[in-house]
Design a protein around this nucleic acid. Sequence first.
DNA 1: GTGGTTGCAAAGACTTTGCATTGTT
DNA 2: AACAATGCAAAGTCTTTGCAACCAC
Lengths: 160, 160
Amino acid sequence: MARQAVAKSDLTAERFRMFQEHLRRLGLKWTSQRDDVAKVFFAAKRHISVEELYREVKKVNPRIGYATVYRTMKLLKECGLASESHFLNGEARYESTEGHHHDHLICVQCGKIVEFEEQRIERLQAQVARKAGFLFTGHRMELYGICAACQKLDRRAPRS
Amino acid sequence: MARQAVAKSDLTAERFRMFQEHLRRLGLKWTSQRDDVAKVFFAAKRHISVEELYREVKKVNPRIGYATVYRTMKLLKECGLASESHFLNGEARYESTEGHHHDHLICVQCGKIVEFEEQRIERLQAQVARKAGFLFTGHRMELYGICAACQKLDRRAPRS
DNA sequence: GTGGTTGCAAAGACTTTGCATTGTT
DNA sequence: AACAATGCAAAGTCTTTGCAACCAC
């Protein structure tokens, strides 16, 4: 019981430590709002949007404001714990950066997101960057397609 | 002289034809504004933003409005002649889709964009999608790094 | 107590939409 | 003549910022 209250996992606990350390380094303060946002974010499914984050935090702390969510996510980005994507529509979505990297395969019809990891692609990317004289720091890759379920629907009710 | 007025190249001429054909199919009209926007877009450097497009078209036709630029780009996207990206900040940028596909390598410090093409990556991507049961329709891939020039600058004036 | 933090509302940036007018077919 | 397209301004999104009250240190 007592242990459970500390953190859901060592990984999450480690993230909290990193976040707190980042704030301390900058002379910033540890507040309950930052704690709430970080908690929800670390526990959330990937690709969480600002709105989803806001709604979830609101359940724990109804007085949270959008501004604080944005400001906290900015801090989490700064210390490398969160990364931001815009996908197709431009709305920001966040995911926590983990040891194991992955990319996304997105259904253009229903929006379903599947994650994948492909070392051979990663290696080729590093190679491409190196050849162009770049110090490779990261990438973003999204594959688009129509998922199996939507393909079936299309067959039943084809367009045009 | 007379030939030059038709189009800068067969490729551009072909794109105009495709655009006009698209409009005709939908019962839409060919207007001078659509002509102006398409002309500027086909001639533009890649990754042109709405604002850049607007300013360029304004030189040719000062009475153009933002709404028309957006509306025309939407049509160009629909018929597959333009594709939209949001890169890091969420602002829309367009580029014309060409026979030969390419991806982007972006310097995170100066914003320089280098294009590249890597068939082996493309093949692996199609493979990944297929394995997940997706009908692969496209992708988006951006590699981030620090370009050679910025690496030199960093050495001279290092951070921290 | 000092100085960063918060929520709110206002302001910004980018994009879309409503509407009377204009232009294509 | 019919009806789509335009420009403008207003409205909509998503995000950031100004500010007085508040809270961590």
